[in-house]
């Protein structure tokens, strides 16, 4: 008799035709959790290896990947010139896994600061899958993987507002990260 690999779980059997779209993903929450952790390890490992091979170039590669994703996601929502509306739409694009708010020091009047043809707004990212992944794999924050969210946010804002933008990482922490979004109106 041929050797069979022993597994703990039960194998699922069912009928399937290629033309049928399954009406549910299947699996229970533990399966998703396990898959998420495996993905976190893979992505963390890829980021680390990328940095090892490409050095500082890794940030640019990951940024570009994020930016492309952001532009694609930004196409799904309505275009606007209104920064507050854009932030609302950005929160829908980024979803619950990138829960962010606009942030200002207590002494500052509004969230936005006008600097010539630029508008600056500080964003605080409270929930972030990238941070989760980095902590899962024991990698430092502010590395290449953080540039994925950087690119994603910039790409989405550029697409929604049809302008040029940049995002600077001000501070990273285990519970929240502060970033500065700069919108360049002349880049329209």
């Amino acid at each position: 008799m041929a050797y069979e690999i022993k597994r703990e779980g039960k194998e699922v059997f069912g009928d399937f035709k290629p033309e049928l779209i399954p009406d549910e993903c299947g699996g229970d929450i533990d399966d998703y959790e396990e898959a998420l952790h495996v993905l976190m390890k893979f992505v963390g490992s890829m980021s680390s290896a990328l940095e090892q091979v490409s050095g500082r170039g890794a940030n640019a590669i990951v940024y570009q990947a994020g930016k492309r994703m952001g532009h694609e996601a930004g196409k799904m929502v309505e275009k606007t010139d209104d920064l507050e509306k854009a932030m609302q739409e950005l929160s829908e694009i980024l979803g619950a896994e990138f829960y962010f708010d606009m942030w200002k020091p207590a002494g500052q009047e509004g969230y936005t600061i006008e600097k010539g043809d630029e508008t600056v707004v500080k964003l605080i990212f409270r929930d972030c899958v990238v941070r989760q992944t980095l902590r899962r794999t024991g990698l430092p924050q502010k590395g290449p993987l953080c540039y994925l969210l950087y690119g994603y946010t910039v790409g989405a804002v550029e697409e929604v507002m049809d302008i040029r933008g940049k995002l600077d990482i001000d501070h990273v922490g285990p519970n929240a990260c502060l970033k500065t979004l700069t919108i360049k109106w002349s880049g329209k």
Partner: peptide, 22 residues
């Protein structure tokens, strides 16, 4: 509420209340 202070404090001497816990 970035909690960098929690991470760096060697004595775990601080507590933040009423914050968004990531």
């Amino acid at each position: 509420a970035c909690l960098s202070c929690h991470e760096i404090c060697p004595a775990e001497a601080m507590e933040h209340k009423n914050i968004h816990v990531a």
